[in-house]
C-alpha cells in the first residue's frame, strides 16, 4: 500500500512537471526574445511595427512591410487552400467510392511530410517559371483592372509565395477536415436525405454545418503553418522590403527576413531589430490564433461539442 501511494506521488510530480514545462518554456522564449530585442525596443518602441524602412547599413529598422508580407502571403494561401482542401475533404467523405478514400488520404498526408526546402526548390524550378510564362500574364490580361494584378511580372512575388504556401498547408487542412467530417454521425446525413435532400444538399445543409467548428480548427492549423513558414517562402517571395498593391510584386515576410539576415547581422542594433521582428511575429501569431479561437467559440456556442444531446 505504501509503495503504491509513493508511486502515485512520484507519478503526479513527474506529470505536473511535464505539464508545467510548456508554460515555462513559453515564458523563457518570450523573455529571451524581449531581452534580445531590448536595444531595438528602446530605440523604436511600438513605432517599429509602423516603420517602413529596413536598412541595416544606416541602422534604420521598421517592420510594417514584413508584417504586411506575412499576413498577405498567409491570406493568399488560405484563400486558395481552404476551398480546395474542403472540396477534397467533402468529396472523400461524402462522394468518392470507398476504395479511393484510403489511398487519396494517404497521399495527402504524405504531402505534409515533404521538407519545406524541397517545396522551395520545386517552386523555383517548376512553379515560378510556369507562373511567369502563363498564369501571371493570363491573370493580368483578365483581371488586370484590379490593382492586385497589375505591374511588371518578375516571377518571384507575393503571389508565388502565397501559392506555394497554399500547397504546403493544404494537406493539414484537408486531413483534419476529413477526420472531422468523418466523425459526423451517419444519422445526420440520413435525416437530411430522408427529407428529400440530394447527397450534395445533405453535405451542405447537415454534414458541413455539424462539423464547422472542427473545420475552422483545421483552417487555424493551416493558418499557423502559413504564418510561420520560412524556407519555401524566402525562396519564392522575392525578399524585397516594400508594400505593393500588386501581388506580382516581390515582398518579404518576418520569418524570411530573420532566416536571411540573422547569420549576417554584425551590429548589435541589426541583431536586436531581427529579434524584435521575431517577437512581433510571435505576437501576430498569438493574436491571429486568439481571434480564430474566439471565432470557434462564437460559432460553437449553443452546440454541445460533438454531440446531439439525445
Amino acid at each position: 500500500m505504501e509503495g503504491r501511494s509513493a508511486g502515485d506521488v512520484i507519478f503526479k510530480i513527474a506529470l505536473t512537471g511535464a505539464a508545467l514545462s510548456v508554460p515555462t518554456l513559453l515564458g523563457f522564449l518570450v523573455f529571451e526574445l524581449w531581452a534580445g530585442s531590448r536595444l531595438a525596443i528602446a530605440k523604436y518602441g511600438l513605432g517599429f511595427v509602423t516603420g517602413t524602412t529596413w536598412d541595416p547599413v544606416a541602422e534604420d529598422f521598421g517592420a510594417l512591410p514584413l508584417i504586411f508580407g506575412t499576413l498577405v502571403s498567409a491570406s493568399i494561401a488560405l484563400a486558395i487552400a481552404v476551398p480546395l482542401s474542403l472540396g477534397v475533404a467533402i468529396y472523400l467523405t461524402e462522394f468518392s467510392p470507398k476504395w479511393l478514400r484510403q489511398p487519396v488520404a494517404f497521399l495527402i498526408e504524405l504531402l505534409a511530410a515533404i521538407p519545406s526546402v524541397v517545396y522551395g526548390l520545386w517552386g523555383i524550378f517548376v512553379l515560378v517559371p510556369v507562373l511567369k510564362s502563363t498564369v501571371f500574364p493570363f491573370l493580368r490580361d483578365t483581371l488586370g483592372f484590379l490593382p492586385f494584378f497589375q505591374g511588371p511580372i518578375y516571377g518571384n512575388s507575393m503571389l508565388a509565395a502565397g501559392i506555394i504556401l497554399a500547397i504546403m498547408v493544404m494537406p493539414y487542412i484537408m486531413s483534419v477536415s476529413r477526420e472531422v467530417l468523418n466523425a459526423v454521425p451517419a444519422s445526420q446525413r440520413e435525416a437530411a436525405m430522408g427529407l428529400g435532400a440530394t447527397r450534395w444538399e445533405a453535405a451542405w445543409t447537415a454534414v458541413v454545418p455539424y462539423a464547422r467548428s472542427g473545420i475552422i480548427g483545421a483552417v487555424i492549423l493551416g493558418l499557423g503553418r502559413a504564418l510561420g513558414e520560412t524556407m519555401a517562402v524566402t525562396m519564392l517571395i522575392g525578399n524585397r522590403n516594400e508594400i505593393a498593391a500588386s501581388l506580382f510584386a516581390p515582398g518579404y515576410t518576418m520569418a524570411a527576413v530573420i532566416a536571411n539576415e540573422f547569420s549576417e547581422a554584425t551590429t548589435d542594433m541589426h541583431f536586436a531589430a531581427l529579434t524584435y521582428v521575431a517577437l512581433v511575429l510571435f505576437a501576430v501569431t498569438v493574436l491571429v490564433n486568439a481571434m480564430a479561437r474566439l471565432l470557434i467559440w462564437r460559432v460553437g456556442r449553443g452546440k454541445p461539442s460533438g454531440g446531439q444531446g439525445a
Binding site: P185, S187, Q188, E190, A191, A192, T205, A206, P209, Y210, R212, K303, P304, Q308, G309, A310
Partner: peptide, 8 residues
C-alpha cells in the same frame, strides 16, 4: 434517435 440539425 432524434436527429435535429444541431447548428439550426
Amino acid at each position: 434517435k432524434p436527429t435535429p440539425f444541431p447548428t439550426m
